[in-house]
C-alpha cells in the first residue's frame, strides 16, 4: 500500500543527528580554544555546552533508526541550523564587544543580540509542533510539560537552598541564563522516554 510521496527527502534521522552532532562539535572547538586562550570562562562554558549537546546527538545517531525524515522535520532542521549557528556567532561577538562599549544603549543592544536567533529557534519549534502529526505533537507536548515542570522545580529548589546559608554565591544572571539550556536539555532527555510508551516492545 505505498503511494507516491509528496516530496521525498533522502535525509534520514540517523544522518541528520550525526550531521547536527558533527556541526555542534565543530562549533564548540573554536569556542573552547578562544575561551582557553583569552581566559574567558563564559566562552569555555558555551563551548562545553555546545560540545556536550553535539556528543549527545552523535550518541543518539548511533542508536537512531535509518528512517527517511518527513518534510516537516527537514524544514525544522533548515530553520534550526542557521538559528543555532547565528546564536553561537552572536554570543561570541556580543561577549567580545560588550565590555569595550562606553554607551549603555550600545551595551544593551549588543548584550541582547543573541536573542534574535533564539527567537527564530522558538519560532521553528512552534512551527514544527503545529505541523507534525498528532502523536508526534502529543509526545513533544508531554516532554515539554515534564521539562518545564522539572526545570521550574529544580530552579525553585535552587532558589530555596540559599536560605540554609550554605555559602553558595550564585549571581541572579547566571541562574537566569541557565533556565533555557536546562529546559532544552531536560526536553531532549525526556522525549525519547515519553516516545517509548507509544513504541511496540518486541
Amino acid at each position: 500500500m505505498s503511494g507516491p510521496s509528496k516530496s521525498p527527502s533522502k535525509l534520514t534521522n540517523r544522518r541528520a543527528l550525526a550531521m547536527m552532532g558533527g556541526v555542534a562539535v565543530l562549533c564548540a572547538l573554536p569556542c573552547l580554544l578562544a575561551g582557553m586562550l583569552t581566559g574567558r570562562r563564559w566562552l569555555v562554558t558555551l563551548g562545553l555546552v555546545v560540545a556536550a549537546t553535539g556528543a549527545a546527538w552523535l550518541l543518539c545517531a548511533r542508536f537512531a533508526r535509518e528512517e527517511v525524515m518527513r518534510p516537516v522535520h527537514v524544514r525544522y532542521l533548515r530553520e534550526f541550523f542557521p538559528a543555532m549557528a547565528g546564536y553561537v556567532v552572536l554570543m561570541m561577538v556580543s561577549g567580545a564587544l560588550v565590555p569595550r562599549m562606553e554607551s549603555v544603549a550600545a551595551r544593551v543592544a549588543l548584550a541582547a543580540l543573541p536573542l534574535l536567533p533564539i527567537a527564530l529557534l522558538v519560532r521553528a519549534m512552534v512551527r514544527v509542533l503545529r505541523d507534525q502529526d498528532e502523536l508526534e505533537r502529543r509526545i513533544d507536548l508531554e516532554a515539554i510539560a515534564i521539562a518545564a515542570m522539572s526545570t521550574a522545580f529544580g530552579f525553585f529548589s535552587f532558589g530555596l537552598l540559599p536560605l540554609a546559608d550554605i555559602g553558595w554565591q550564585v549571581s541572579g544572571h547566571t541562574v537566569a541564563i541557565w533556565v533555557m539550556p536546562c529546559l532544552f536539555a531536560i526536553f531532549g532527555i525526556t522525549k525519547p522516554l515519553v516516545a517509548r510508551r507509544y513504541r511496540d516492545r518486541e
Binding site: S2, E67, R70, E134, L135, E136, Y198, D200
Partner: peptide, 12 residues
C-alpha cells in the same frame, strides 16, 4: 505517507 503521518504513529 498516504495518511501524512509518521511511521511511528502508524505503528502505535
Amino acid at each position: 505517507e498516504r495518511l501524512d503521518v509518521s511511521r511511528q504513529t502508524v505503528n502505535a
